[in-house]
Design a binder for these strands. Structure first.
Length: 464
RNA sequence: GCCGGGGUGACAGAGCGGCCAUGUGGCGGACUGCAGAUCCGUAAACAGGAGUUCAAAUCUCCUCCCCGGCCCCA
């Protein structure tokens, strides 16, 4: 079964074939680092984290590039408020971003280019576009001439003439067409700026991504990702620049993640309806946050409300509980069933769901089913230790991509053996109906972070 | 207005032509010294209207409603 993914460019699912067999170059639009990251940023990062992990699972050699926009109006404005240099602010925010995303177990990208460190490439591209006649200089700024582009709107479906009504030219700008956009912006006094053939200035919004794609991946990238709000105009304009400059198709597959919403409105700074990752993490484990954000199609908006994280936590506990039970059962289960059939079925189904445009929600549903069947085998006393091992194997493979289960094998060291011994003592107490003794052992272990559960096959324990 | 994406049970969310989604919650059982977990069973939905079809949440058309984008900026 081949990997199929939904391409925003064609508005349909297509079999995935990278430009070079076995290798994938993926570029995901990152954040503008003027403030701390909120849960909406986490959704995007986790969606693409799982996509990259799945591509690797499928055997691809993946180069993942995510940028930091560390120079822009908002950063400059915020830095001025705080009275610090713009690049100092953005560097601080980048550190915060990594701190948040590391906590969420998001694998680091292969490279995190910054706009401020990509200047030679950006300037070269702008100059090239001017030389080829796609762009023009005006009062120290450089604009891309949309009327010169071969095709306009192939990603977003927008027609240039329909857009004319809204656009206008700001005083001081010198665009030839209202829809033209800045490749290079002349510096205003006091702003952070770089030398260029057009005088001091800084890059326009869209150009850094085009330059970074070329520098770190090549003329054509296999996958370009970002939030749906970036489709227009940002990604549209990237296409214009890159294809004009490179004379090559820019992107093979465009992937866009749906936004996180609250009361059906997107989570954003400007609406003040956001939750910082840092604050969420004070109340919920990172695994729960990951699990919650993967409980939907990456492409659709996801509605956040007060109870959704609670529910995700309970649902995840269900899988975790089965996993813990299986680890225990692998040591002492006494049945015959090796569970090979249900494991094979589950894993095949799981892979098929993931291959179908990374349907994480359905893949999770497969895991619930496996969990269900495993629990039944166990409760009916039919599961063998071999079977428990097989089920653990599927959970482990699942977890390599989702990374939501606490996976450490417990009980192999001395403290684990001592706990087993205490359970034995407790079991003796229970047999002679000394429940006070039994409950004390359970309570004291609980205080030490060890949770006991009595089952048909005896007690099992796990770290809380 | 234009370009996209949507409207599914109490909530969150799959499915996109015929079969149980799933999870949380509800209800009824089982197990149990108590906890917890688990198991068995059960109720509950496809915005509205027309059409296509033997058969439609699923396809077509119309209506209503919601979200994202359409100056700058992510």
């Amino acid at each position: 079964m081949a990997l199929v993914l939904y391409n925003t460019l064609t508005r349909k699912k297509e079999p995935f074939e990278p430009l070079i067999k076995g290798r994938v170059g993926i570029y995901v639009c990152g954040v503008t680092v003027y403030d701390e990251s909120h849960l909406g940023h986490a959704k995007s990062a986790i969606n693409f984290d799982v996509i990259v992990r799945w591509l690797r699972h499928r055997g691809y050699d993946v180069k993942h590039v995510t940028n930091f926009t560390d120079v822009d109006d908002k950063i400059i404005a915020r830095a001025n408020e705080l009275g610090i240099p713009a690049l100092e602010l953005s560097q601080k925010m980048i550190e915060g971003y990594h701190r948040d995303m590391d906590m969420l177990r998001i694998e680091r990208a292969s490279v995190y280019p910054k706009a401020s460190e990509t200047m030679p490439d950006i300037i070269a591209m702008v100059r090239g576009l001017v030389e080829k006649g796609y762009a023009y200089e005006s009062n120290g700024s450089v604009y891309f001439s949309v009327r010169r582009a071969k095709e306009y709107g192939k990603l977003s479906g927008q027609k240039l003439d329909d857009l004319q009504t809204g656009a206008r030219i700001e005083p001081g700008e010198d665009k030839r067409d209202p829809m033209d956009f800045a490749l290079w912006k002349a510096a205003k006094p006091g702003e952070v700026a770089w030398e260029s053939p057009w005088g001091k200035g800084r890059p326009g919004w869209h150009i850094e991504c085009s330059a970074m794609c070329l520098k770190h991946i090549g003329k054509t990238v296999d996958i370009h990702g970002g939030g749906t709000e970036l489709i227009f105009p940002h990604h549209e304009n990237e296409i214009l620049q890159s294809e004009a400059y490179n004379d090559a198709p820019f992107v093979r597959y465009w992937l866009h993640n749906g936004l996180l919403t609250i009361d059906e409105e997107k989570m954003s700074k400007s609406l003040k309806n956001f939750f910082l990752i840092r604050d969420i993490m004070k109340r919920y484990r990172p695994e729960v946050v990951r699990f919650y954000l993967l409980n939907a199609s990456y492409r659709q908006p996801l509605e956040y409300n007060e109870t959704s994280l609670e529910e995700a936590g309970k649902a995840l506990d269900r899988l975790q509980n089965t996993y813990d039970m299986m680890i225990s059962a692998a040591k002492n289960a006494s049945g015959e069933d090796d569970a090979v059939d249900i494991c094979d079925k589950a894993w095949k189904e799981y892979e098929a769901r993931m291959d179908d445009d990374f349907s994480t929600r359905e893949a999770i549903a497969v895991m619930y089913e496996l969990s269900h069947e495993a629990n039944r085998l166990l409760s009916e006393g039919r599961l063998g230790s071999r079977g428990a091992e097989n089920i653990i194997g599927v959970f482990d493979k699942f977890n390599e991509v989702f990374d939501v289960l606490a996976g450490e094998r417990l009980g192999e060291d001395l403290s684990g053996k001592l706990i087993d011994l205490l359970l034995l003592v407790r079991e003796e107490a229970r047999k002679r109906k000394d429940f006070a003794q039994a409950d004390v052992i359970r309570k004291r272990l609980s205080e030490l972070g060890i949770e006991i559960q009595d089952t048909q096959d005896g007690a099992v324990w796990k770290r809380k």
